[in-house]
């Protein structure tokens, strides 16, 4: 897999929980394609299957059937993993979740450093990179603070810095602005746009927030576990706002 060709491709992904009478189909026959550097919104009501799709693409859940490719690599074929998923997550995927899930006993900079160090980046280089990221996200002044000392917006920016630490090819965000006010929420969304532009990172965001849809290149809409539509966002309004 190379950076320039990387894209995410899902083929007929289906996820069924339970069995027999207790069987629940969370996602059914979903096929999609994400290009390099693309920022994609995943829309849909609760229970639509957004989180299921996100966890399958994020390699933290396996599909019941269907295949998932990252670049040229077949990553999962049905429930069977074809690669070391944890190593893939470590090297190629960044996560931003609704709850920031920062490690509570690490400071802001240590949380970012941790993502680098588990990817074999040495101490000093990791620290420099972490500080650089915090600076670019305008939260460097809080680098020595523990998560509980930070505001919601600051925590979310630290979480984004952690997600970006290893220059991932794919950033997955699940309701990243749910706990933020509209201004902060928009700032976070714009940050994803910037990251995609500057680093060529593909960003997939599951969101209910329709106010920032203009930021996205493409919108995937889901309902009842099915992908209803894939449409491009209104380019003119996007250009005007970005």
């Amino acid at each position: 897999m190379t950076a320039s060709t990387l894209a995410i491709r899902g083929q007929s992904l289906t996820k069924i929980y339970g069995s027999g009478n207790a069987e629940v189909t969370a996602m059914e026959d979903v096929s999609f394609f994400l290009s390099t550097g693309e920022v994609v919104a995943l829309l849909g009501p609760s229970g639509a299957g957004k989180s299921t799709l996100l966890t399958i693409v994020g390699l933290i859940n396996s599909p019941t059937s269907g295949r998932l490719f990252i670049g040229e690599d077949l990553v999962t074929d049905g429930p069977a993993a074809k690669v070391n998923l944890r190593a893939y997550r470590r090297r190629f995927i960044g996560y931003v979740l609704q709850k920031t899930n920062l490690i509570p006993f690490l400071t802001a900079v240590e949380n970012v450093r941790l993502a680098l160090e588990i990817n074999d980046v040495s101490g000093r280089a990791a620290r420099n990179r972490a500080m650089e990221l915090l600076k670019s996200l305008d939260v460097v002044h809080r680098s020595g603070n523990l998560p509980y000392m930070l505001s919601g917006g600051e925590q979310q920016r630290v979480a984004i810095a952690r997600a970006l630490a290893n220059r991932p090819r794919l950033v997955l965000a699940d309701e990243p602005t749910a706990a933020l006010d509209s201004v902060r929420g928009r700032q976070v969304m714009e940050l994803f746009r910037t990251v995609a532009r500057e680093y060529g990172t593909t960003v997939m965001v599951a969101t209910h927030d329709h106010r920032s849809l203009d930021i996205f290149d493409r919108i995937l809409e889901m309902e009842d576990g099915k992908l209803l539509s894939q449409r491009h966002a209104d380019i003119s309004s996007r250009i005007a706002k970005v």
Binding site: R86, R89, R90, I93, N101, I103, L114, N119
Partner: peptide, 16 residues
């Protein structure tokens, strides 16, 4: 346990 799950999510090896 939640932090450990997070460590696994971001790809931390079992040795960590």
């Amino acid at each position: 346990i939640h932090d450990i799950a997070m460590l696994k999510l971001i790809g931390a090896r079992n040795s960590v």
